[in-house]
């Protein structure tokens, strides 16, 4: 057992649970073990498992978002713990609903106030493209990515809670792989 190196993601690993693979190798030694990993990977792994969303919902997608936060679906199981009412304490903003022209500067400001690293999920048709309002409207922004950059898009009108959970976990995967927009920009 001394010289075998386990991939921590295997099912018998003490650190890996399900798809949440610990980025590194564990060398077991008598009376303990040694963990080998890259600091960047370790930080990404830690960050991805503690993403606190901002309380931000502009229309009906917000109801589904609340369902995901509630007891039945419960995104705290995956590290989304608790929605923060202040952008300064939030890591991820879930754009749950229509963004109108008057809301756009508010959204931009909230995004600017969030501390790095920050991530964005566009939830539902309105946040992706303007949704049912994309045709001939005087007030709706046709896609929240006209205002702030988006990491993950969730289709649906509104998306089911499962779809939002899938999006949240996709975001975690992206962070772990170092493939979010911010990570690529910083060359990490």
């Amino acid at each position: 057992m001394n010289d075998t190196s386990n991939n921590a993601g295997s099912s018998n690993s003490p650190l890996g649970v399900g798809g949440n693979i610990f980025p590194g190798q564990i060398h077991e030694t008598p009376g303990g073990g040694i963990v080998l990993s890259k600091l960047d990977d370790l930080i990404n792994w830690a960050r991805s498992n503690s993403l606190w969303p901002l309380t931000f919902a502009t229309s009906c997608c917000g109801i589904e978002y609340m369902a995901v936060a509630g007891a039945k679906y419960d995104f705290s199981r995956f590290g989304f713990e608790v929605a923060r009412a202040s952008p300064r304490q939030a890591d991820v903003i879930i754009i749950a609903g229509t963004i109108v022209n008057k809301m756009a500067p508010v959204l931009k400001r909230l995004y600017d106030q969030m501390a790095d690293p920050k991530y964005v999920i566009a939830m539902g048709a309105c946040a992706i493209s303007g949704g049912p309002f994309f045709y001939n409207t005087y007030s709706v922004v046709k896609g929240a990515d006209h205002v702030i950059p988006v990491d993950v898009y969730v289709a649906g009108c509104p998306p089911r809670p499962e779809a939002l959970i899938h999006a949240l976990m996709s975001l975690q995967e992206k962070i772990k792989m170092g493939l979010t927009r911010e990570q690529i920009k910083d060359g990490k």
Binding site: F134, Y135, N136, T137, Y138, K142
Partner: peptide, 10 residues
């Protein structure tokens, strides 16, 4: 009325 900025015709 037609949206002057981003009109999409169907």
């Amino acid at each position: 009325f037609e949206d002057p900025i981003n009109m999409i015709r169907l």
